[in-house]
Simulated scan of single mutants.
Amino acid sequence: MNSNSQSIKLFLVLAFSCTSLFASLTPVLAKPTLGSSRSDAYSGLRLRSDPKTTLAQATTFNQPPIPAGSPPGGRVRGGAKRGAIGALAACPPTKLDLTALVSFTQEDNSVINVWGQTTVERPSWFFYVPYTKDSPYAVEFVLQDQDSNEIYQKAIALPDKPGVIRVSLPTTAAALAVNKQYRWFFTINCDKEKNSPPTFVEGVIQRIELNPATVKELQTTEPLKRYAIYAQKGIWYEALTTLAELRQKNPQDAALKAEWRNLLGSIRLDDVAGEPILPETP
């Protein structure tokens, strides 16, 4: 055998040996290193299966259909817009408008219907307010029954900084009746003389009853799962309130922040999803 043949044979033997050695090392490299735990080795899988992270990807708010009868109409955003008499609202323009954190639909003719469901006698509403207590503006929340009778009115104190505030129906107010519709208004009047129209948002809320099986499930499950049930059932007010309370108790939880953005994004309110949730004032 000449020297060229011997060189080729030696090269092939070395190449095969290196390939075999690499193949034998591959499973060793895939195993956890000494001193690491099984959970450390599979931390990526654990994060992907975290219930909060999974929920943020899976939960969808199912908007219920508008009830029969006259459409609710309403207004989900306020701002320095023209009023009925053609005059500009006195409130100065802001980066983000006054916004009601509530579900709404927009029809092909641009008509907006602000409407949501609740299951409790005394629900809570959330609003993004761009003005602060340094502004001498009159703010109030009003709730009316189906016959436009005022059943609750409260003057609202502006917060220390712009953010999302909560307005709850107190025990001193009449409870919402099942299957009745109520209209709410949140108004900011920036003109002391009231010669200019106020900035306001409005909508309709209806209390419904859930079936006994769902009620039992809600009573025995943890808050994050309750939120998911409410969202899937189209119960906007309890879905939002449950998630807001979870976020306030766990302000640094990235998964809850993501779910909050997911929920508000599902109703096209992405722009206020990053605003802080402020403590509820009495």
Rank of each mutant, 00 (worst) to 15 (best):
M1E: 10
M1N: 09
N4L: 15
N4F: 15
L25C: 08
P27H: 02
L29R: 00
L34T: 05
S37F: 04
G44L: 03
L47A: 04
D50S: 10
T54H: 03
Q57F: 14
A58L: 13
T60G: 07
Q63S: 10
A68T: 14
G69C: 11
S70V: 08
G73D: 06
L88C: 03
P92E: 13
T94L: 00
K95C: 02
V102I: 13
T105C: 06
T118N: 08
T119A: 10
W125I: 01
T132F: 00
T132I: 01
V142C: 04
E150M: 15
E150W: 04
K154V: 04
A157E: 13
A157H: 03
P159M: 03
K161V: 06
K161A: 06
V167S: 12
A173H: 02
K180M: 05
R183M: 12
T199F: 01
E209K: 15
N211K: 15
A213L: 15
V215K: 04
L224C: 01
L224Q: 08
Y230Q: 13
Y230G: 11
Q232V: 12
G234Y: 05
T242C: 06
L243V: 08
L246A: 08
L256W: 01
E259G: 02
W260L: 09
N262I: 02
R268M: 07
V272L: 14
I277M: 07
